[in-house]
Design a protein around this nucleic acid. Structure first.
Lengths: 200, 200
DNA sequence: GTCTATACTACGATAGAC
DNA sequence: GTCTATCGTAGTATAGAC
């Protein structure tokens, strides 16, 4: 730990300021739409410094994207592979943790999904979600509980109910504070509905 | 009807060829990422012709976007406002029609939602989905059936289950043919699950 | 490390010949 | 209506002074 500091941003290093700015602008506008000038301005530094610390816009972007993918995986993987949790416990924990994550990072889904669509090749190796899920205890438990339905259908529905509001909030929700409140409400609703579906 | 023609593309007017190309490229790559040169090449015409027929990239884009929004609304509005349909009939029809639409236009959701996020101001007046839904018989029926749950939560879940697979298909589904097959399966699954949820 | 000035490239748009 | 050639601008990246 460094000495106690009161300032939030004034004492952060230039490199860190650039990273923070890049995080914000990239996730808000996507790769093509962000200009390195936007990032420099947001960071309060000169444009040349961006290329001094990171070689290029592309390199800087890769850092941010890797970080965001890591963030997404870090929520899912520990849960779906945890043999000690029952199926119902997994569902409840997944939904709660995911909604908490997305409330803190509302741009995340549209950002990641948009960039994957824009450049599928760049994600070919990094995204083996299907393989990671395939052997998980989550899938195994789903097959046991509902042998007649492909697990993918349940997972897509669970993810859809959880993630979709964050993707479509501009259209479907009025203001930001009621949105947050309703997402808290959704935690228990989705969990309940998912269990109901499994009992069908 | 024009005289019978066998060719599909050779006889279409230059203007129509540009529109078709723009439809394809814009919905695939989004506004910022598409270059007018891409559209010209896709249409098999010269770049200058694009500005001859449509004044600018922006004008051409607005045409395509208006068309796509119209497409989305034309599926939803007639159903949610139809007083002759029961709630269960509305749900079934909505899911079926939407999945059919999205199978034919898989890029549609990510395209529209991405552009709205990129330029929220440009959609302020055109998107009054909330107001259009507010007074619909669909909402009224939902309130009657489940007075304890905000209708928005049910609608978001229904839309999420239906639309999300098309947004995340790069990640969650293997190949295109099994994807289509599984989307057909989903029609009856979502309808069934939605009804189950309403009985909770 | 940080700045200013600039090179280089890519893009949207237009002029002008046919 | 359609083409070639080109203008103007905006964006990434770098050179070089401090």
């Amino acid at each position: 730990m460094a000495k106690s500091k009161e300032a939030k941003n004034l004492d952060t290093s230039t490199e860190e300021k650039i990273i923070q700015a890049a995080r914000k602008v990239f996730t808000q506008k996507g790769y093509v739409a962000t200009r390195t000038r936007d990032i420099a301005e947001e960071a309060g530094i000169n444009l040349a410094l961006l290329n001094y610390y990171f070689r290029s816009k592309e390199k800087l972007f890769q850092m941010i994207m890797a970080e965001k993918l890591q963030l997404l995986f870090s929520v899912v993987l520990p849960i779906v592979n945890n043999d000690d949790l029952t199926l119902d416990e997994k569902i409840e924990t997944l939904v709660e943790n995911y909604i908490d994550l997305l409330i803190d990072n509302p741009d995340l889904p549209l950002f990641v999904l948009g960039e994957i669509k824009a450049n599928p090749e760049g994600f070919k190796d990094r995204l083996q979600v299907r393989k990671l899920l395939q052997n998980s205890s989550f899938i195994r438990q789903l097959r046991e509980r509902k042998p007649d339905v492909e697990p993918v259908h349940f997972i897509v529905s669970l993810l859809g109910m959880t993630v979709f509001p964050f993707i479509a909030k501009q259209i479907l929700f009025a203001d930001d504070s009621t949105f947050k409140m309703q997402m808290e409400e959704r935690k228990v609703l989705i969990t309940k509905w998912a269990r109901t579906i499994l009992e069908t």
